[in-house]
Amino acid sequence: MGIAIIEKLASLDRRWIFLLMFLAVAIPILLELEFPEKPTLLAQDVFDEIEKLEPGDKVLLAFDYDPASEGELGPMATSFILHCANKKLKMYFLSLFPVGPQMVEDGITKVILTDFPDLVYGEDYVNLGYKPGYEGVIKVIMTDLRELYTTDARGQNIDQIPMCQDVENVQDMKLILNVSAGYPGSKEWVQYGATAYPDKVKMVAGVTGVQAPYMYPYVPKQLKGLLGAIKGAAEYETLVNEKYVEGEPKPEYREGVRRMGPQLIAHLLMIFLILAGNILFFLQKRIQRL
């Protein structure tokens, strides 16, 4: 009897596991499960690096991700914009992903147009759009922005955009904030931006969980701070909301924390599945020996 159960569980139809995963994600979403976040040092470093800047300082926001990674990276991109807008920094958006400009526009609509209507396009923020060429783009704009960016994403001549007139290259930026889903992304910005001009260029990044382990070796010299996946986003979001949002933050500004609920249950399920799989594995081995 016991052997039969073990054999049945070991050869469990994977659709049951899919169903469990579905429930593990769906139930916390429906119940709006949220847990407190205690910022780790890396998220604090990202926050502090932006805090050090003065109003009017220029920051480059490179949003190198697409809708596939929006679930993981969207909240940190939103928090970056919210933080910069509150600090009254000059925001220069660009992307090395073909659909990155849409991610930029989404962020601008969600934060700037909704909660900072006094910020003026071309004076306080500008979307430079997408340029093909992978790390080649980074290499060129580090020394000459106009070599590749002659217009913004709307087709307006860059020389007619007030906040671009005194920008020669990316070295004029006080900080690079990169949100990256892969190649080209944080690694390339570190290699061709931060590392090539260590005295002039500072950088922080928010990356996917898959990328994070590859970025740790660059912290803290080439990368001043790092947000890893939705966990990093939730921690940073907490810091920004605590300092700049009065009262209960809007759902758009709590997305990181909200998405940590399903992540917790899904992680616990994964641990359970790994344990269950191994227990069954050892039981099967024992049965075979008998």
Binding site: L12, R14, I17, F18, L20, M21, F22, V25, A266, L269, M270, L273, I274, A276, G277, N278, F281
Partner: peptide, 15 residues
Amino acid sequence: LAFYVASAAFRAFRA
């Protein structure tokens, strides 16, 4: 990916 990773965790992640 979440579904496939869960399935793999149960079947392949063995000590």
